[in-house]
Computed example of a mutant assay.
Amino acid sequence: MQMQGRALNILIIGGGIAGCCAAIALGQAGHRVRIVEKQSEWRFQSSGIFVYANGLESLGKLGLLDDILAAGFAVPDGRNAYYDHRGRPIVETFYPTADGGTIPAILGIKRAEMHRVMAARVAALGVPISLGTTVTNLQEQTDGITAVLSDGSNEMVDLVVGADGLRSATRAMIGIDVAPRYTGVGVWRSVHRRPPELTDKIMMMGPAKRFGIMPISDDRLYTFGTMAEPAGSYYAPADWPQLMRARFAEFEGPAAPFLAELNAESEVLYTAVEEVALPLHWHRGRVQLIGDAAHASTPFMGQGGAMAMEDAVVLAEALAAVPDLEAALTAFGQARFPVCEFVQNVSRAVGEDGARETSGDEEARHAALRETAQAKVDGFYMRLAELRASARF
Protein backbone atom coordinates (compact mmCIF):
# COMPACT_ATOMS: atom_id res chain seq x y z
CA MET A 1 0.00 0.00 0.00
CA GLN A 2 1.35 3.41 -0.96
CA MET A 3 1.11 5.71 2.08
CA GLN A 4 2.54 8.88 0.51
CA GLY A 5 2.69 10.65 3.86
CA ARG A 6 -0.99 10.23 4.68
CA ALA A 7 -2.32 9.48 8.14
CA LEU A 8 -3.10 5.83 8.75
CA ASN A 9 -5.85 4.24 10.80
CA ILE A 10 -3.99 2.04 13.28
CA LEU A 11 -5.32 -0.42 15.85
CA ILE A 12 -2.95 -1.30 18.71
CA ILE A 13 -3.59 -4.53 20.59
CA GLY A 14 -2.29 -4.25 24.14
CA GLY A 15 -1.93 -1.32 26.51
CA GLY A 16 1.36 -2.09 28.28
CA ILE A 17 4.70 -0.38 27.73
CA ALA A 18 4.92 -1.34 24.05
CA GLY A 19 1.30 -0.48 23.28
CA CYS A 20 1.27 2.86 25.09
CA CYS A 21 4.59 3.92 23.56
CA ALA A 22 3.38 2.90 20.09
CA ALA A 23 0.17 4.89 20.56
CA ILE A 24 2.18 7.94 21.59
CA ALA A 25 4.77 7.67 18.82
CA LEU A 26 2.19 7.03 16.10
CA GLY A 27 -0.28 9.58 17.46
CA GLN A 28 2.42 12.26 17.58
CA ALA A 29 3.23 11.42 13.97
CA GLY A 30 -0.36 12.27 12.97
CA HIS A 31 -1.83 8.78 12.61
CA ARG A 32 -5.30 7.92 13.92
CA VAL A 33 -4.73 5.41 16.68
CA ARG A 34 -6.93 3.26 18.92
CA ILE A 35 -5.90 0.85 21.70
CA VAL A 36 -7.76 -2.29 22.71
CA GLU A 37 -6.71 -3.81 26.03
CA LYS A 38 -8.01 -7.07 27.47
CA GLN A 39 -7.93 -5.90 31.09
CA SER A 40 -11.18 -4.34 32.22
CA GLU A 41 -9.09 -1.98 34.33
CA TRP A 42 -5.45 -1.09 33.77
CA ARG A 43 -3.73 -2.98 36.58
CA PHE A 44 -0.02 -3.51 36.36
CA GLN A 45 2.20 -5.58 38.60
CA SER A 46 3.80 -3.05 40.85
CA SER A 47 7.42 -4.11 41.11
CA GLY A 48 10.13 -1.89 39.69
CA ILE A 49 11.88 -1.58 36.38
CA PHE A 50 15.27 -0.23 35.32
CA VAL A 51 15.46 2.15 32.38
CA TYR A 52 18.98 2.74 31.09
CA ALA A 53 20.00 5.77 29.06
CA ASN A 54 19.05 4.29 25.68
CA GLY A 55 15.49 3.71 26.94
CA LEU A 56 15.38 7.21 28.45
CA GLU A 57 16.36 8.60 25.04
CA SER A 58 13.27 6.97 23.56
CA LEU A 59 11.13 8.37 26.36
CA GLY A 60 12.51 11.80 25.49
CA LYS A 61 11.40 11.39 21.88
CA LEU A 62 7.96 10.43 23.16
CA GLY A 63 7.72 13.57 25.30
CA LEU A 64 7.71 11.56 28.53
CA LEU A 65 11.20 12.05 29.92
CA ASP A 66 10.59 14.87 32.39
CA ASP A 67 7.56 13.18 33.94
CA ILE A 68 9.30 9.81 34.10
CA LEU A 69 12.35 11.34 35.78
CA ALA A 70 10.09 13.08 38.30
CA ALA A 71 8.29 9.82 39.10
CA GLY A 72 11.39 7.63 39.41
CA PHE A 73 14.90 7.73 40.85
CA ALA A 74 18.04 8.46 38.83
CA VAL A 75 21.04 6.64 40.31
CA PRO A 76 23.85 9.14 40.95
CA ASP A 77 26.67 8.75 38.42
CA GLY A 78 24.99 5.58 37.09
CA ARG A 79 26.81 3.64 39.81
CA ASN A 80 26.38 -0.11 40.28
CA ALA A 81 27.98 -1.48 43.44
CA TYR A 82 28.80 -5.21 43.48
CA TYR A 83 28.95 -7.22 46.71
CA ASP A 84 29.29 -10.88 47.51
CA HIS A 85 26.40 -12.57 49.30
CA ARG A 86 27.98 -11.88 52.66
CA GLY A 87 27.91 -8.16 51.97
CA ARG A 88 31.61 -7.67 51.18
CA PRO A 89 32.34 -5.13 48.40
CA ILE A 90 33.73 -6.51 45.15
CA VAL A 91 33.82 -3.66 42.61
CA GLU A 92 31.85 -0.69 41.28
CA THR A 93 30.83 -0.08 37.67
CA PHE A 94 29.34 3.00 36.04
CA TYR A 95 26.75 3.02 33.26
CA PRO A 96 26.92 5.59 30.45
CA THR A 97 24.73 8.68 30.25
CA ALA A 98 23.31 10.05 26.99
CA ASP A 99 22.91 13.39 25.23
CA GLY A 100 26.09 14.83 26.68
CA GLY A 101 25.15 13.83 30.21
CA THR A 102 21.71 15.46 30.25
CA ILE A 103 20.04 12.03 30.21
CA PRO A 104 20.88 9.95 33.30
CA ALA A 105 22.62 6.62 33.00
CA ILE A 106 19.97 4.62 34.82
CA LEU A 107 16.57 5.29 36.32
CA GLY A 108 14.56 3.05 38.63
CA ILE A 109 10.79 3.45 38.65
CA LYS A 110 7.77 1.52 39.84
CA ARG A 111 6.01 -0.08 36.88
CA ALA A 112 2.65 1.33 37.92
CA GLU A 113 4.14 4.84 37.99
CA MET A 114 5.63 4.42 34.52
CA HIS A 115 2.29 3.30 33.21
CA ARG A 116 0.52 6.21 34.90
CA VAL A 117 2.77 8.66 33.04
CA MET A 118 2.34 6.87 29.73
CA ALA A 119 -1.44 6.58 30.10
CA ALA A 120 -1.70 10.31 30.83
CA ARG A 121 0.15 11.09 27.60
CA VAL A 122 -2.05 8.67 25.63
CA ALA A 123 -5.12 10.44 27.01
CA ALA A 124 -3.69 13.89 26.23
CA LEU A 125 -3.27 12.82 22.60
CA GLY A 126 -6.94 11.83 22.48
CA VAL A 127 -6.25 8.18 21.72
CA PRO A 128 -9.42 6.09 22.30
CA ILE A 129 -8.94 3.09 24.59
CA SER A 130 -11.30 0.11 24.75
CA LEU A 131 -10.74 -1.79 27.99
CA GLY A 132 -12.02 -5.30 28.52
CA THR A 133 -11.78 -5.84 24.77
CA THR A 134 -9.85 -8.33 22.65
CA VAL A 135 -9.47 -9.00 18.93
CA THR A 136 -11.00 -12.33 18.01
CA ASN A 137 -10.20 -12.40 14.30
CA LEU A 138 -8.26 -10.49 11.66
CA GLN A 139 -9.45 -10.46 8.07
CA GLU A 140 -7.10 -8.89 5.54
CA GLN A 141 -8.49 -7.26 2.39
CA THR A 142 -6.92 -5.43 -0.51
CA ASP A 143 -7.56 -1.99 0.95
CA GLY A 144 -7.21 -2.69 4.67
CA ILE A 145 -7.66 -5.19 7.46
CA THR A 146 -10.80 -5.84 9.48
CA ALA A 147 -10.41 -6.55 13.19
CA VAL A 148 -13.32 -8.42 14.75
CA LEU A 149 -13.61 -7.35 18.38
CA SER A 150 -14.94 -9.25 21.36
CA ASP A 151 -17.70 -6.66 21.86
CA GLY A 152 -19.17 -7.74 18.53
CA SER A 153 -17.98 -4.76 16.51
CA ASN A 154 -15.73 -4.75 13.46
CA GLU A 155 -13.09 -2.16 12.71
CA MET A 156 -11.46 -1.62 9.32
CA VAL A 157 -7.94 -0.18 9.67
CA ASP A 158 -4.77 0.22 7.64
CA LEU A 159 -2.45 -1.40 10.18
CA VAL A 160 -2.69 -3.56 13.29
CA VAL A 161 0.14 -3.42 15.85
CA GLY A 162 0.34 -6.48 18.09
CA ALA A 163 1.76 -5.23 21.39
CA ASP A 164 0.12 -7.89 23.53
CA GLY A 165 3.14 -9.34 25.22
CA LEU A 166 4.94 -12.60 25.69
CA ARG A 167 1.83 -14.75 25.19
CA SER A 168 0.59 -12.69 22.28
CA ALA A 169 -2.73 -13.82 20.88
CA THR A 170 -1.98 -11.66 17.84
CA ARG A 171 1.16 -13.68 17.13
CA ALA A 172 -0.85 -16.89 17.05
CA MET A 173 -3.65 -15.24 15.04
CA ILE A 174 -1.30 -14.41 12.17
CA GLY A 175 0.12 -17.92 12.02
CA ILE A 176 3.39 -17.58 13.94
CA ASP A 177 3.47 -20.74 16.02
CA VAL A 178 6.15 -19.80 18.55
CA ALA A 179 5.56 -20.33 22.26
CA PRO A 180 7.56 -18.66 25.05
CA ARG A 181 10.60 -20.69 26.13
CA TYR A 182 11.25 -21.20 29.84
CA THR A 183 14.85 -20.37 30.67
CA GLY A 184 15.11 -22.36 33.88
CA VAL A 185 15.38 -19.24 36.04
CA GLY A 186 12.85 -17.58 38.33
CA VAL A 187 12.79 -13.97 39.53
CA TRP A 188 11.56 -12.92 42.98
CA ARG A 189 10.79 -9.22 43.47
CA SER A 190 9.71 -7.14 46.45
CA VAL A 191 9.04 -3.46 47.18
CA HIS A 192 10.28 -1.69 50.32
CA ARG A 193 10.75 1.73 51.89
CA ARG A 194 14.08 3.19 50.77
CA PRO A 195 16.55 4.35 53.41
CA PRO A 196 17.74 7.85 52.38
CA GLU A 197 21.38 6.73 52.21
CA LEU A 198 20.70 3.91 49.76
CA THR A 199 21.13 5.54 46.34
CA ASP A 200 23.19 3.01 44.34
CA LYS A 201 22.03 0.16 42.19
CA ILE A 202 23.34 -2.85 44.10
CA MET A 203 24.09 -6.32 42.77
CA MET A 204 24.98 -9.10 45.19
CA MET A 205 26.64 -12.22 43.84
CA GLY A 206 25.87 -15.52 45.54
CA PRO A 207 26.61 -19.07 44.38
CA ALA A 208 24.14 -19.67 41.53
CA LYS A 209 22.02 -16.78 42.85
CA ARG A 210 21.86 -13.02 42.41
CA PHE A 211 20.18 -10.43 44.60
CA GLY A 212 19.72 -6.85 43.47
CA ILE A 213 18.50 -3.65 45.08
CA MET A 214 17.30 -0.67 43.04
CA PRO A 215 15.87 2.68 44.21
CA ILE A 216 12.64 3.48 42.36
CA SER A 217 11.48 6.75 43.98
CA ASP A 218 12.32 9.22 46.73
CA ASP A 219 10.97 6.78 49.32
CA ARG A 220 10.79 3.33 47.69
CA LEU A 221 13.14 0.68 46.32
CA TYR A 222 12.66 -2.79 44.96
CA THR A 223 14.70 -5.93 45.35
CA PHE A 224 15.04 -8.78 42.89
CA GLY A 225 16.50 -12.22 43.37
CA THR A 226 17.26 -14.70 40.58
CA MET A 227 17.98 -18.41 40.81
CA ALA A 228 17.23 -21.68 39.01
CA GLU A 229 13.69 -22.97 39.49
CA PRO A 230 12.26 -26.27 38.22
CA ALA A 231 10.19 -26.09 35.06
CA GLY A 232 6.46 -26.03 35.72
CA SER A 233 6.83 -24.90 39.32
CA TYR A 234 3.83 -23.16 40.85
CA TYR A 235 3.98 -21.17 44.06
CA ALA A 236 0.82 -19.75 45.60
CA PRO A 237 1.00 -15.94 45.80
CA ALA A 238 0.24 -16.06 49.52
CA ASP A 239 3.47 -18.02 49.99
CA TRP A 240 5.71 -15.70 47.95
CA PRO A 241 7.01 -13.56 50.85
CA GLN A 242 8.14 -16.51 52.97
CA LEU A 243 9.54 -18.34 49.95
CA MET A 244 11.54 -15.33 48.81
CA ARG A 245 12.91 -14.85 52.30
CA ALA A 246 13.94 -18.53 52.47
CA ARG A 247 15.38 -18.65 48.93
CA PHE A 248 17.86 -15.85 49.65
CA ALA A 249 18.40 -16.36 53.38
CA GLU A 250 22.19 -16.60 52.97
CA PHE A 251 22.40 -13.02 51.68
CA GLU A 252 23.73 -10.65 54.31
CA GLY A 253 24.88 -7.03 54.15
CA PRO A 254 22.60 -4.68 52.19
CA ALA A 255 20.05 -7.43 51.47
CA ALA A 256 19.51 -8.58 55.04
CA PRO A 257 17.11 -5.91 56.34
CA PHE A 258 14.82 -6.19 53.32
CA LEU A 259 14.68 -9.97 53.44
CA ALA A 260 14.03 -9.87 57.19
CA GLU A 261 11.00 -7.64 56.83
CA LEU A 262 9.20 -9.80 54.26
CA ASN A 263 5.83 -10.87 55.60
CA ALA A 264 2.28 -11.54 54.51
CA GLU A 265 1.67 -7.82 53.90
CA SER A 266 4.73 -7.33 51.68
CA GLU A 267 4.55 -6.55 47.97
CA VAL A 268 6.19 -9.65 46.47
CA LEU A 269 6.02 -10.98 42.92
CA TYR A 270 7.37 -14.23 41.48
CA THR A 271 7.75 -14.83 37.75
CA ALA A 272 9.32 -17.64 35.75
CA VAL A 273 11.69 -16.13 33.21
CA GLU A 274 10.63 -16.88 29.64
CA GLU A 275 11.72 -15.49 26.32
CA VAL A 276 10.39 -15.18 22.77
CA ALA A 277 12.88 -14.95 19.93
CA LEU A 278 11.23 -14.67 16.52
CA PRO A 279 13.14 -14.73 13.25
CA LEU A 280 12.16 -12.12 10.69
CA HIS A 281 9.63 -11.23 9.48
CA TRP A 282 7.87 -9.77 12.51
CA HIS A 283 4.86 -8.85 10.40
CA ARG A 284 2.35 -10.66 8.25
CA GLY A 285 0.58 -8.43 5.76
CA ARG A 286 -0.83 -5.47 7.69
CA VAL A 287 -0.13 -6.89 11.16
CA GLN A 288 3.10 -5.89 12.91
CA LEU A 289 4.39 -7.40 16.17
CA ILE A 290 6.42 -5.27 18.57
CA GLY A 291 7.85 -5.55 22.09
CA ASP A 292 7.61 -8.85 23.96
CA ALA A 293 5.28 -10.27 21.32
CA ALA A 294 8.29 -10.36 18.97
CA HIS A 295 11.37 -10.44 21.19
CA ALA A 296 10.70 -10.97 24.91
CA SER A 297 14.09 -10.95 26.60
CA THR A 298 15.38 -12.29 29.89
CA PRO A 299 15.77 -9.51 32.50
CA PHE A 300 19.50 -9.86 33.19
CA MET A 301 20.53 -6.77 31.19
CA GLY A 302 17.50 -4.70 32.20
CA GLN A 303 16.68 -3.90 28.56
CA GLY A 304 13.24 -5.42 27.92
CA GLY A 305 11.29 -2.21 28.50
CA ALA A 306 13.81 -0.13 26.58
CA MET A 307 13.54 -2.41 23.56
CA ALA A 308 9.75 -1.98 23.53
CA MET A 309 10.12 1.81 23.77
CA GLU A 310 12.61 1.85 20.91
CA ASP A 311 10.31 -0.35 18.81
CA ALA A 312 7.59 2.29 19.08
CA VAL A 313 9.88 5.15 18.08
CA VAL A 314 11.47 3.26 15.18
CA LEU A 315 8.11 2.01 13.85
CA ALA A 316 6.87 5.61 13.61
CA GLU A 317 10.13 6.60 11.89
CA ALA A 318 9.86 3.76 9.39
CA LEU A 319 6.27 4.65 8.47
CA ALA A 320 7.32 8.27 7.95
CA ALA A 321 10.38 7.46 5.85
CA VAL A 322 9.23 4.60 3.62
CA PRO A 323 6.25 5.33 1.33
CA ASP A 324 5.01 1.73 0.95
CA LEU A 325 3.49 -0.01 4.00
CA GLU A 326 4.90 -3.47 3.28
CA ALA A 327 8.34 -2.00 2.65
CA ALA A 328 8.11 0.13 5.80
CA LEU A 329 7.25 -2.86 7.99
CA THR A 330 10.05 -4.89 6.42
CA ALA A 331 12.49 -2.04 7.03
CA PHE A 332 11.33 -1.76 10.63
CA GLY A 333 12.05 -5.43 11.27
CA GLN A 334 15.45 -5.24 9.59
CA ALA A 335 16.34 -2.25 11.75
CA ARG A 336 15.22 -3.73 15.04
CA PHE A 337 16.17 -7.40 14.70
CA PRO A 338 19.96 -7.02 15.12
CA VAL A 339 19.50 -4.76 18.15
CA CYS A 340 17.00 -7.02 19.92
CA GLU A 341 18.89 -10.20 19.04
CA PHE A 342 22.08 -8.74 20.51
CA VAL A 343 20.33 -7.79 23.75
CA GLN A 344 18.65 -11.19 24.03
CA ASN A 345 21.87 -13.12 23.45
CA VAL A 346 23.91 -11.14 25.98
CA SER A 347 21.12 -11.21 28.58
CA ARG A 348 20.59 -14.95 28.18
CA ALA A 349 24.32 -15.66 28.56
CA VAL A 350 24.52 -13.57 31.73
CA GLY A 351 21.56 -15.40 33.26
CA GLU A 352 22.81 -18.85 32.32
CA ASP A 353 26.29 -18.14 33.67
CA GLY A 354 24.88 -17.02 37.01
CA ALA A 355 22.47 -19.91 37.43
CA ARG A 356 25.04 -22.67 36.90
CA GLU A 357 27.75 -21.43 39.28
CA THR A 358 28.89 -23.47 42.24
CA SER A 359 30.33 -22.32 45.55
CA GLY A 360 33.84 -23.12 44.34
CA ASP A 361 33.59 -20.46 41.65
CA GLU A 362 33.26 -17.49 44.02
CA GLU A 363 36.83 -16.18 44.25
CA ALA A 364 37.51 -16.65 40.56
CA ARG A 365 34.25 -14.86 39.77
CA HIS A 366 35.11 -11.93 42.01
CA ALA A 367 38.58 -11.58 40.49
CA ALA A 368 37.11 -11.65 36.99
CA LEU A 369 34.53 -9.03 37.98
CA ARG A 370 37.19 -6.66 39.24
CA GLU A 371 39.18 -7.09 36.06
CA THR A 372 36.47 -7.08 33.40
CA ALA A 373 33.16 -5.70 34.72
CA GLN A 374 33.57 -2.10 33.57
CA ALA A 375 34.96 -3.15 30.20
CA LYS A 376 31.95 -5.42 29.67
CA VAL A 377 29.53 -2.60 30.51
CA ASP A 378 31.33 -0.23 28.15
CA GLY A 379 31.51 -2.84 25.41
CA PHE A 380 27.83 -3.72 25.67
CA TYR A 381 26.64 -0.12 25.41
CA MET A 382 29.14 0.73 22.67
CA ARG A 383 27.92 -2.17 20.54
CA LEU A 384 24.29 -1.35 21.33
CA ALA A 385 24.84 2.23 20.22
CA GLU A 386 26.46 1.04 16.98
CA LEU A 387 23.54 -1.26 16.17
CA ARG A 388 20.96 1.42 16.97
CA ALA A 389 22.82 4.00 14.87
CA SER A 390 22.82 1.69 11.84
CA ALA A 391 18.99 1.54 11.92
CA ARG A 392 18.34 4.40 9.52
CA PHE A 393 15.80 4.60 6.70
Rank of each mutant, 00 (worst) to 15 (best):
66 D>R: 12
276 V>D: 03
329 L>D: 05
161 V>C: 12
225 G>F: 08
24 I>P: 01
325 L>K: 02
142 T>F: 10
261 E>K: 12
2 Q>A: 14
344 Q>R: 15
319 L>I: 03
315 L>Y: 06
82 Y>M: 05
297 S>Y: 01
60 G>P: 05
288 Q>M: 07
360 G>I: 03
79 R>P: 13
337 F>R: 06
366 H>N: 12
194 R>F: 00
116 R>W: 02
325 L>M: 14
316 A>M: 01
48 G>F: 03
29 A>Y: 04
84 D>A: 00
203 M>K: 10
84 D>Q: 00
302 G>F: 03
130 S>N: 11
2 Q>G: 14
86 R>E: 04
180 P>Y: 04
176 I>H: 13
154 N>S: 15
127 V>L: 02
201 K>G: 15
200 D>R: 03
381 Y>G: 04
227 M>D: 13
294 A>Q: 00
189 R>L: 15
182 Y>Q: 12
105 A>F: 08
261 E>C: 13
241 P>T: 02
227 M>T: 13
216 I>E: 01
274 E>H: 14
152 G>K: 10
107 L>S: 07
142 T>W: 09
28 Q>G: 14
101 G>T: 15
72 G>F: 01
150 S>R: 03
289 L>P: 00
34 R>M: 08
1 M>L: 11
30 G>L: 06
390 S>Y: 05
331 A>V: 00
265 E>T: 09
5 G>T: 02
359 S>Q: 15
186 G>L: 01
267 E>I: 11
153 S>N: 10
266 S>V: 00
96 P>I: 07
88 R>F: 10
163 A>P: 01
34 R>G: 02
29 A>R: 01
317 E>T: 02
123 A>N: 12
64 L>H: 04
293 A>N: 03
292 D>N: 09
349 A>F: 10
91 V>A: 09
217 S>H: 03
207 P>G: 04
345 N>T: 14
50 F>V: 07
354 G>Q: 12
355 A>N: 07
275 E>F: 08
74 A>E: 10
37 E>W: 00
312 A>Q: 03
38 K>G: 08
55 G>H: 02
111 R>W: 07
21 C>F: 02
181 R>M: 15
86 R>P: 00
343 V>G: 12
253 G>S: 07
341 E>V: 14
122 V>Q: 11
271 T>H: 15
239 D>A: 11
112 A>G: 12
377 V>P: 05
288 Q>H: 04
324 D>N: 14
261 E>N: 10
377 V>D: 03
76 P>H: 14
296 A>T: 05
113 E>P: 08
210 R>Q: 06
373 A>T: 04
238 A>W: 00
302 G>A: 09
383 R>N: 15
291 G>W: 06
248 F>Y: 10
346 V>E: 15
276 V>Q: 05
180 P>W: 04
387 L>R: 10
207 P>L: 05
281 H>Q: 13
384 L>Y: 10
16 G>F: 01
385 A>R: 09
158 D>Q: 00
268 V>C: 08
323 P>E: 08
